[in-house]
Simulated scan of single mutants.
Amino acid sequence: MKRKEQYQDFHDFIIEGTMLCLEKYTINELPLTEVCKKAGVSRMTVYRHFKNKEEVVLEYFELIYDKFLKELLELESINSLILSEKLVGLFVEQEEEIEKAVKGNYYSLIFQVFAQKMTIFL
Results as ranks from 00 to 15, higher is better:
His11Thr: 09
Lys4Trp: 02
Gly89Ser: 14
Leu83Glu: 01
Ile15Lys: 06
Gly104Glu: 09
Tyr65Gln: 05
Glu54Pro: 03
Val113Lys: 01
Lys2Gln: 12
Asn79Ile: 09
Ala39Asn: 00
Ile27Gly: 07
Ile110Asp: 03
Phe61Asn: 09
Ser80Gln: 11
Ala115Gly: 02
Val56Met: 13
Leu69Arg: 10
His49Gln: 13
Ser84Pro: 01
Ser84Val: 03
Met1Glu: 06
Glu97Ala: 13
Ile82Gln: 05
Glu54Gly: 15
Ile64Pro: 04
Tyr60Val: 02
Arg48Asn: 15
Thr33Tyr: 12
Leu73Gln: 12
Glu29Met: 09
Ala39Arg: 00
Glu71Arg: 13
Thr45Pro: 00
Leu75Thr: 08
Leu58Phe: 04
Asp9Lys: 14
Leu30Asp: 01
Leu122Phe: 15
Val88Leu: 11
Ile98Trp: 06
Met44His: 08
Glu5Ser: 12
Lys117Asn: 03
Phe61Gln: 09
Glu99Asn: 13
Glu16Ser: 11
Thr45His: 00
Asp12Asn: 14
Ser84Trp: 08
Asn79Ala: 09
Leu75His: 10
Gln94Pro: 05
Ser77Val: 11
Leu30Phe: 04
Glu34Ile: 08
Val88Tyr: 10
Met44Thr: 14
Leu20Gly: 04
Glu93Trp: 03
Ile120Glu: 13
Tyr65Cys: 05
Glu55Tyr: 12
Phe121Asp: 06
Leu75Gly: 03
Gln116Ser: 10
Glu97Leu: 14
Cys36Leu: 11
Thr18Gln: 06
Ile78Val: 14
Val92His: 06
Leu81Ile: 13
Lys51Arg: 13
Leu83Thr: 02
Ala115Glu: 12
Glu55Asp: 13
Lys67Met: 10
Ile110Leu: 15
Tyr65Ile: 13
Glu99Ile: 15
Lys53Asn: 09
Tyr65Arg: 06
Lys70Pro: 00
Glu5Met: 08
Thr33Val: 14
Val41Leu: 04
Arg3Cys: 02
Lys70Gln: 10
Met118Arg: 07
Glu54Met: 06
Leu81Lys: 13
Glu34Asn: 06
Lys51Asp: 08
Glu76Val: 05
His11Cys: 11
Ile15Asp: 04
Phe114His: 03
Lys53Ile: 07
Lys67Gly: 07
Ile64Trp: 02
Phe68Gln: 03
Phe111Leu: 15
Gln8Arg: 14
Lys4Phe: 04
Ile82Tyr: 04
Tyr107Asn: 06
Glu96Gln: 11
Met1Arg: 04
Val113Gly: 00
Lys2Pro: 07
Lys38Ala: 13
Phe61Ile: 07
Val57Asn: 00
Ile110Thr: 09
Asp9Met: 09
Ile82Thr: 10
Asp66Ala: 03
Tyr47Arg: 05
Asn52Phe: 01
Glu93Asp: 15
Glu99Lys: 15
Glu23Pro: 05
Ile27Pro: 02
Ile14Gly: 01
Gln112Lys: 15
Glu76His: 07
Lys38Asn: 15
Ser108Val: 09
Gln112Arg: 13
Met19His: 06
Asp9Pro: 00
Val57Leu: 01
Met19Arg: 06
Gly40His: 10
Lys70Ile: 11
Val102Glu: 13
Leu58Arg: 12
Leu32Tyr: 10
Phe68Trp: 13
Tyr106Ala: 02
Thr45Phe: 00
